[in-house]
């Protein structure tokens, strides 16, 4: 397929490589080292290791119940693994609550849309700017000049993201009333407004029709290209994954089946067995 297919992740880690379309892929942003996650007696993830490189689109795929969402929840701190280490930006990350992980530059969307339904699109996107606002409450209450100026700056950034994702026309609409596909896009906009170093997308195309899927795929690729955002996503639709992902991790029953480029994992016998069932 391309020269990357023949490289192991370790070779890629050496840095200086780029995707066929010329985007640079850098050093690991995130590394999972022997992650094991248990709920009571159930092992959701068992000894999983993989990395996410700067600037790439990394897909996590697998059948239902494979542990994909659990994996994402480990990355953004909703779950704390019993064993293994999570390395972020080159050093092991101590166990911390998810809102602190958000402060470190990890944004996410949810499988079942989690928007602030009582707010408009713009207000939702503005919450993504929350962490970047520095002026304290006292000045904001007084409508003190610099506090207003700060608000205006963040508003501009929010509008930029809104334009980018082509949701200007619903800027002031309450998000609860929007169709499903647009809600998903607003959620992406909110995450993007955080200007994250790592963007986690949990089934960004679930429940969409073909046209909506194409739109969303295009937005994900655009985000990756224009902002250089590193993206890790979970997706069911294999065709989509093959189209947009640079590298793919395949999970099944909490174990790791394969890790490689789309072409490699598609040709992997264990992956074929897991998806299609083993014929005996």
């Amino acid at each position: 397929m391309n020269e990357m297919s023949s490289m192991t992740p370790e070779q890629l880690n050496a840095g200086g490589y780029s995707t066929p379309d010329g985007r640079p892929i850098g050093s690991p942003v995130m590394e999972m080292k022997n992650i094991t996650l248990k709920f009571g007696g159930v092992t959701a993830l068992s000894n999983i290791s993989f990395n996410i490189l700067e600037g790439e689109i990394r897909a996590i795929i697998g059948p239902n119940g494979a542990g994909k969402s659990s994996m994402l929840n480990v990355i953004n701190g909703f779950y704390h693994p019993q064993e293994g280490e999570v390395w972020f930006q080159g050093s092991p990350r101590p166990s911390m609550p998810p809102y602190e992980i958000a402060e470190q530059g990890i944004a996410r969307t949810f499988q079942n849309i989690a928007l602030f339904k009582g707010m408009s699109t713009l207000q939702n996107v503005m919450t993504g700017r929350q962490l970047k606002m520095k002026k304290n409450m006292f000045w904001q209450m007084l409508r003190y000049g610099p506090a207003i100026q700060e608000e205006v700056e963040h508003r501009r950034k929010a509008e930029e993201v809104i334009d980018f994702l082509e949701i200007q026309h619903i800027r002031h609409a309450p998000v609860g009333s929007l169709p499903y596909g647009l809600q998903k896009r607003v959620e992406l906009a909110r995450a993007l407004a955080m200007e994250p170093d790592l963007l986690l997308l949990d089934e960004p195309m679930a429940g969409m029709n073909v046209e909506e899927k194409e739109d969303m795929s295009r937005f994900i690729l655009d985000v990756n290209e224009q902002y250089g955002t590193t993206i890790a996503l979970i997706e069911h639709d294999m065709a989509v994954v093959m189209d947009i992902a640079d590298r793919v991790v395949v999970l099944d029953y909490g174990r790791m089946l394969a890790d490689g480029t789309p072409g490699e994992v598609q040709a992997d016998q264990a992956v074929i067995d897991a998806y299609l069932g083993v014929s005996s």
Binding site: N76, F78, P98, Y99, A107, A114, L115, K117, T127, A191
Partner: peptide, 12 residues
């Protein structure tokens, strides 16, 4: 509105 979403944008 939504605890989970709030946490994900960095609200403690």
């Amino acid at each position: 509105d939504d605890h989970q979403a709030a946490v994900s944008v960095g609200i403690g």
